[in-house]
Computed example of a mutant assay.
Amino acid sequence: MKLQDSVIAITGGGQGLGRAMAELLASRGARLALIDRVPETLEEAAEACKKAGSDAKTYVCNVVEEGEVETTFAAIVKDFGQLNGLINNAGIVRDGLMVKAKEGRVEKRMELDHWQSVLDVNLTGVFLCGREAATQMIETGSQGVIINIASISRAGNMGQSNYSAAKAGVSALVPVWAKELARYGIRCMGIAPGFLRTEMTASMKPEALEKMKASIPLKRLGEPEEIAATAAFILENDYMSGRIIEVDGALRL
């Protein structure tokens, strides 16, 4: 797929990894539909995309609300006339051990709300947005690509029962959708990032951050721009479908 003038929707597009992907794609001529819950960060991201040389529109949407998702994707097609790509990037974390015990007594357990909220956003939100993007692509005759942002935590990361389960589900959707949607000219791929330099890692204690870096064979965190470059590679390669690309500095959980 040629990025020039293609229309790419990005959930969680107002900040962090989503914004990095948006800016890189904008610099290559793609038009961006940025989806997020915070209007202020969305507007800042849209301005950055315009400075990068392309058009961008913003859509405030909670990806766990079916009606909002349907309305948002209908609005994207109305505004741009087509939809060529979706990057399912929106996600949250609510880390914690399933159970934490001391001297044979359980002191803390993962709250059901923390489990459910992560599954809602990180998995159900991906399903809802993927389903609606596919619907719009088919009905407008726009061949396209869906990219699910997974994580190396999909293999199971201590303290992330909820996040690991959600990302494993997101990864499983990739080959399913690739097989189901190929007949309509729609590809599906996934990216599983390792530890990235983000606002979250920047707030970590220096000793914890150094320990994290030491566990990575390349001895550094990944850059959001490196994930963005991977997304662009997937979008432009028309024979890639049904696979997960791991971008993790050789770290394997």
Results as ranks from 00 to 15, higher is better:
Met200Thr: 06
Ile191Lys: 00
Ser215Tyr: 04
Leu119Ser: 03
Glu40Tyr: 01
Thr11Ala: 07
Arg105His: 14
Ile152Lys: 04
Tyr239Pro: 05
Val247Phe: 12
Val170Tyr: 04
Leu25His: 12
Met240Gly: 04
Leu218Cys: 04
Gly156Arg: 13
Pro206Val: 05
Gly29Ser: 06
Gly13Arg: 10
Leu235Met: 08
Ala74Glu: 15
Leu112Ile: 15
Ala45Lys: 03
Lys57Arg: 15
Ala101Cys: 08
Thr11Met: 09
Arg220Val: 12
Leu235Ser: 00
Ile152Phe: 08
Ile191Met: 01
Val121Tyr: 04
Gln160Asp: 07
Ala74Gln: 12
Asp79Phe: 11
Val121Thr: 10
His114Glu: 13
Ala232Met: 07
Ile8Trp: 00
Asp55Gly: 04
His114Val: 04
Ser142Cys: 07
Ala214Tyr: 09
Ala133Thr: 08
Gly12Met: 03
Gln136Glu: 14
Leu196Cys: 13
Ala168Phe: 02
Ser151Ile: 06
Lys167Arg: 08
Thr41Asn: 14
Phe195Lys: 01
Pro193Trp: 13
Pro217Trp: 00
Asp36Ala: 14
Ile138Cys: 01
Leu119Ala: 11
Gly18Ile: 12
Thr72Gly: 03
Ser171Leu: 03
Val93Leu: 13
Ser215Leu: 08
Ala228Arg: 05
Lys57Ile: 12
Leu221Arg: 05
Glu132Gly: 00
Glu180Asn: 13
Arg31Trp: 08
Glu246His: 13
Val247Gly: 06
Gly190Ser: 07
Glu40Arg: 06
Cys61Tyr: 09
Ser151Met: 03
Val145Pro: 03
Val7Asn: 05
Arg154Ile: 01
Gly156Glu: 13
Glu132His: 11
Gly53Gln: 15
Lys102Ile: 10
Lys205Thr: 08
Glu70Trp: 12
